[in-house]
Every structure is written in structure tokens, then in C-alpha cells.
């Protein structure tokens, strides 16, 4: 397993996780996550080369149901929790530039 976590790595992971962290938080996070990673490296003691990974406790796959139409939630109910809305839409900041090209 890799060596100690760096602040740079923490900033990268925060970006992947879409979490804005302040400088102080980055330092704290680096220390605390390093300690946890150090602890979980205990798993390296085991030889798992011939072990199948287990993602789920029960053996089940592809649970299918009949493809029957049924009512979903009403737009009113769905919009009721939206922080900003313009019915029947949810408002978000502009995603695409005005500059054209796309």
C-alpha cells in the first residue's frame, strides 16, 4: 500500500468528492486520514491472492420485475424540496457558455 498521505493528495481527493476544504481542514484531514489509512493497512498482513471479492452479503444478481407502467412522484412533490425552482424545472447556475461552439 502507498506511503503517507500528502496535503496535495487530500486536495485532489476533496476535488473528486466535491468538498470545498479550507487550508486548516486540509491539514487536519491529512493527519486524521493518514492515521486511519495506517490502521487499515493491517489488511496487508493477509494473503488474499486466492480469495474472491465479496461486495454483497447475499448471492443475488439481476433482480427483475415486470416492465409495467406505474405512477411516479408528481412534479409538485419532487419540486417541493428544491432549493431554487422555476416550475416545472429546478434552477441551477449556467452550465454551458454563451460563447457557442457546442
Amino acid at each position: 500500500m502507498p506511503q503517507k498521505l500528502t496535503e496535495q493528495e487530500v486536495r485532489h481527493v476533496a476535488k473528486l468528492g466535491r468538498l470545498r476544504l479550507g487550508d486548516h481542514e486540509v491539514r487536519q484531514m491529512t493527519d486524521k486520514l493518514s492515521a486511519v489509512l495506517d490502521y487499515v493497512s493491517k489488511l496487508n498482513e493477509l494473503d488474499v491472492s486466492n480469495v474472491e471479492p465479496m461486495a454483497h452479503a447475499m448471492d443475488m444478481a439481476n433482480v427483475l420485475r415486470d416492465d409495467v407502467e406505474r405512477p411516479g412522484l408528481s412534479i409538485d412533490l419532487v419540486l417541493a424540496n428544491a432549493p431554487e425552482q422555476s416550475p416545472p424545472f429546478i434552477k441551477v447556475p449556467k452550465v454551458i457558455d454563451d460563447g457557442g461552439g457546442a
Binding site: G17, V40, L46, P53
Partner: peptide, 26 residues
């Protein structure tokens, strides 16, 4: 969220997440 994102991230997935799933079976 940070720890989970890290163990699933490119380069660390096998070392952490996949290994943990194998130990889970043990």
C-alpha cells in the same frame, strides 16, 4: 466521504477497496 473517495480512486482501488472485499469474504 474523503476516505471512501480515496479508497475508490484510481491507483488505490485494488490496494484498499478490492483487498477489503476479499477480507470480507474471509
Amino acid at each position: 466521504i474523503m476516505l471512501g473517495t480515496y479508497v475508490l480512486s484510481s491507483g488505490y482501488y485494488d490496494a484498499y477497496y478490492l483487498r477489503a472485499l476479499k477480507v470480507r469474504r474471509l
